Simulated scan of single mutants.
Amino acid sequence: MAVSLRRKREAPRGRYTPNLWPVWIVAPVALIAAGALGWVIYHYAYDHFAQSAADQEPPKPVNINDPLKATVTALTLIGAVLAGLYAYRKQLLAEGDAHRADASQLADRYTTAAEQLGHDQAAVRLAGVYALARLADDWAEQRQVCIDVLCAYLRMPYEPDPTAPEHKAGEQEVRQTIIRVIRDHLQEPDVPTAWCEYNFDFTGAVFDGGSFSTSHFRGIVTFAGAEFSGGTVDFAGAEFSGGTVVFHGARFSGGTVTFDGAEFSGGTVDFHGARFSDGTVSFDSAKFSGGTVDFFGAEFSGGTVDFPGATFSGTSFDWGPVPVPAGA
């Protein structure tokens, strides 16, 4: 018997069902405890009333109803407290069940959205993008994970040329939708569903268009090794504050990448080893205040990189052994 009870009490932690003693054990123990407590209270009350009666002139006998009333009152108060504790415990258990149900539902939504993103049909992948974005809004604890999945999709191999054998129909629309969803969540930093404080990893991603304009980036944003091969990638009016923006080894081989009116305040902007071979990269009227901008080892073999109207205050620039672009 003792071994069986001990095994029940040593049940693995993390189980959902409360590990309680059997009723046939708890009930007798509770009755014995209540009786013992009532006996102690009664004798304490009797001694108190007996002492009070003896101190009177002339001494009076103890009214037996007085200690009985005091005992019943004390036991009732204790019972009320225990009942309140029991109700509180039930509430905690109910809230725990609700929390686990919510977590299970959110996990199911995550699984479904991830499966949709891997579907062969572009329309289903689009549904997965929106489903994952809604899940990120509802699931703050795992919001970074949802963001990481969207970024990972953009990092997957992508052939933008529609005539190439590897090109997938509708893939550009899916990728543009991901960029648009991310941008929409970076517009208002103070709303509860904003993603501004989170990290974004676009390492090695291929961009042939998309807008991050007027976005607020406050975490680590990585475009290391990314390829900007066509279209327009728009960072106009974006704010990069305090975090790290990495374009280390990025390749600008076509199209236009504009940082017009963008603000870089604090942190580090790293174009170390970036290659500018075609297209246009514009920092027109961009503002650099504080922090470090690193172009060390960058290669300028074609295209245009210019800084007309850009302002610099308290910013450390490292151009390395390369010619300084126009306007810098």
Rank of each mutant, 00 (worst) to 15 (best):
V23C: 05
V324W: 03
T292W: 02
P157Y: 07
F295Y: 11
D55I: 04
H272E: 08
F235M: 03
W195M: 08
Q56V: 06
A194Q: 04
V124T: 14
Y158P: 01
H272Y: 05
D120E: 14
A236P: 01
F288E: 01
R100W: 04
E57R: 14
A236C: 10
A27S: 13
Y110N: 10
V145W: 05
E227Q: 15
T203H: 09
V81T: 00
Y198H: 14
D102G: 07
Q116D: 07
R155I: 00
D306C: 08
Q187G: 03
W21N: 09
H43I: 03
Y158S: 02
V174Q: 02
Y153H: 14
G14T: 09
W139T: 06
S282A: 14
D55T: 10
F223D: 00
E141L: 11
A152E: 06
A262R: 04
G249H: 07
A70G: 08
H248K: 15
F295L: 06
E188K: 14
H119E: 03
E115I: 11
I178D: 01
T232H: 10
Q144K: 13
Q172I: 04
N19G: 06
A238S: 13
L150P: 01
A94L: 07
L31P: 00
F317G: 05
L93H: 11
A2H: 08
D294R: 14
F223V: 05
L92S: 11
A11D: 01
V281W: 01
H167S: 13
L68G: 04
A236H: 06
I32D: 01
I25C: 01
V221R: 02
P58G: 13
S301W: 07
E95D: 14
S211N: 07
F217D: 00
E173M: 11
F300H: 08
F296S: 11
E173G: 10
A83L: 15
D208K: 13
H99N: 15
A140T: 14
M1T: 13
C146G: 09
P59I: 10
V29L: 12
L68D: 03
V246G: 00
T73A: 12
Q142H: 14
I220Q: 09
F247D: 00
S241P: 00
L68S: 12
D137S: 11
